[in-house]
Amino acid sequence: MNIFRLAGDMTHLMSILVLLLKIYATKSCSGISLKTQELYAVVFLARYLDLLTDFFSLYNTVMKVVFIVSSLAIVWCMRYHRAVRRTYDRELDTFRHYFLILGSFVLALIFHEKFTVREIFWAFSIYLEAVAILPQLVLLQRSGNVDNLTGQYVFFLGAYRGFYILNWIYRYFTEAHFGRWIASISGLVQTALYADFFYYYFLSWKNNAKLKLPA
């Protein structure tokens, strides 16, 4: 565990806490894409199959369980909670996310480390995570105005990706045999998707203005 990875995990955790806080405190999920949340739930379930077979550390196990449970709880709230579901921007959240699942799975069948169920699900989860933010970014772009908590949620998610890239650079120079190609290329793609959002986030922060994305 290095400082970049810890910072990445913590900002990832922060993003989830900010999202839970927004939903709990405001009883609203406006501006949040259910499609993206469903994709994250699939990502965590597919990747953390190893919870059943491997043990790395208590930290690793606890974080995995937290990510799985929180992502399922968020999806459940947005779909079934009586007050929260009414605030869902259904008509703006029309990204066809099934294509992302299908595409990621096909990619995993082609590019994987070993042709085993676990390796293919692992690669699938990496590819899917790289593009899972797309429905969220499209929704934000369409709604134009972004409330503070939603902006911070996406900011922390982007920060998490940035820290993970620093972590891979660090591991590349400090560890032998660090197998990284699938994760690194997907991670770079994922981080690049946030670039546009970050530009407008910092602009609004610099000008002390409300975050607005151009149409």
Binding site: R5, D9, H12, D50, F56, N60, M63, K64, F67, W122, Y164, N167, W168, R171, E175, A176, H177, F178, G179, R180, I182, A183, S184
Partner: peptide, 10 residues
């Protein structure tokens, strides 16, 4: 020891 792997990440 096992070679280090990106799979020990979250």
């Amino acid at each position: 020891a096992e070679p280090s792997s990106v799979k020990d990440e979250l």
